[in-house]
Design a protein around this nucleic acid. Sequence first.
DNA 1: AAAGTTTCGTTAGAAGGTATCACGAAAGCG
DNA 2: CGCTTTCGTGATACCTTCTAACGAAACTTT
Lengths: 253, 253
Amino acid sequence: MAESDAKGGAEAAAKDATDASAATPRARYRAQVRAEVKEHAWKQIAEAGASALSLNAIAKQMGVSGPALYRYFAGRDELITELIRDAYRSLADAVRAAAATGAGVRRLAHVLRGWALADPHRYFLIFGTPVPGYHAPEDITGISQEIMADLLAACAALGPDAPGEGAGGARAGASVAEPSAAFDAHIAGHRDWAGGLAAPPAVLRRALAFWTRLHGVLSLELAGHFAGMGFDPALLYEAELDGLLGPEGMPGG
Amino acid sequence: MAESDAKGGAEAAAKDATDASAATPRARYRAQVRAEVKEHAWKQIAEAGASALSLNAIAKQMGVSGPALYRYFAGRDELITELIRDAYRSLADAVRAAAATGAGVRRLAHVLRGWALADPHRYFLIFGTPVPGYHAPEDITGISQEIMADLLAACAALGPDAPGEGAGGARAGASVAEPSAAFDAHIAGHRDWAGGLAAPPAVLRRALAFWTRLHGVLSLELAGHFAGMGFDPALLYEAELDGLLGPEGMPGG
DNA sequence: AAAGTTTCGTTAGAAGGTATCACGAAAGCG
DNA sequence: CGCTTTCGTGATACCTTCTAACGAAACTTT
């Protein structure tokens, strides 16, 4: 029953092993070792990417034997899942901290870019090539909903007739408002992801555009696809942001 | 000297091993085996992703021993590089074929999406998480420039004052034309990637926006980030396309 | 056609990875 | 102090990439 205990213990301790100040000394030690493993894992990922992550190498670096780590993580997959969770939480915290100081969408975008540039591998862990069989646990989707909620709130703060193409108000004729109206009609009926927020469809569409457009520039930049092209990705990012926000420069941004 | 011969042979044959109808029977056989290996590799990638690609498994499927494949590929990296090259070529061919029939940007965008959905793993092989130490060979960057040239031509066909936010003409005031003008000034000085094409900065900017925005939607969709959100990614893709093109619907699109 | 050379595919093996098992030692708990 | 749980270890099985050496097959040349 040693193996089932180790498994059950790992799962049971997963709740309180996250906080360092647990009740029992056992759990506290567990949490510390788990944290140390993840620390080495992040270092290894930053150096050679997530695909090169090796439990064996981490164990060697920590001065213990390979199988020792299996007392703390069920396997490589569980460790990676944990790292993905930490990455999501890190991004959510960064976004929330900015939003708490009243940051607008523009500032949020800069927070996102700064967070991504600080550790590209961490960004790709979330938004990069998905692992074939992997399905994110419940709590991770919850964290991503936190991020979306903050983004949605920032977009709602812009007002329903905010500038930008297709948003409705600022355009000359109805010729431009039409295409987004078609999507607005669709998104109005599929707003489960917006939580309880009673935002108009234009706001939902704006939040989606923010996400996809910034990710588009950011991921191509981080992957090096702009490498030989000469221009500054930061300026392209800013240009997309301008197109999204309009030039008047939101006060909180 | 067998090993240096095998290496040199592989490199020398790499040129004519690509076309199936080579001069010598040796080269023809080589080309056939290499093609068969890649075929199995694609199947394996489609099933479990590029990270799960195993030379050993391919050899087993082909009924030969593991090391036999090292006569045809220097290693796993060379095989993957070859697959990336094929993926780029496949995309470039698809784009060029569409462009040859006079397809506009809208149709090009649909070709891109169709190509990506046909094999998501192939898309991620190009635009997904980059492998840490990998640098694309010269000819691969050449193929990507082909794609960019076609996109650029299609964008130029739209005319310099085409619709879309920040392009200049269709907007009500100068307040919206300003932000993109800032980027236009920058991109005007860094247009090495545009080849010899004498396109105005607005066209370059438009092509860049096409690439980044469509990739933004597409990559998030393929990675499953829209999974639990309920809306139809195809409609979001279309909405972004509309925002890029304007609603009047290009004739060739 | 025979001889020579190149290439091919094999087995063997090194080095490294994940993951399991069984055992002894350490540490917490009653 | 003793019982119980947990921890770390070495051994082991099986996977991977990749190199080396050898025999056989095939192409080339004489």
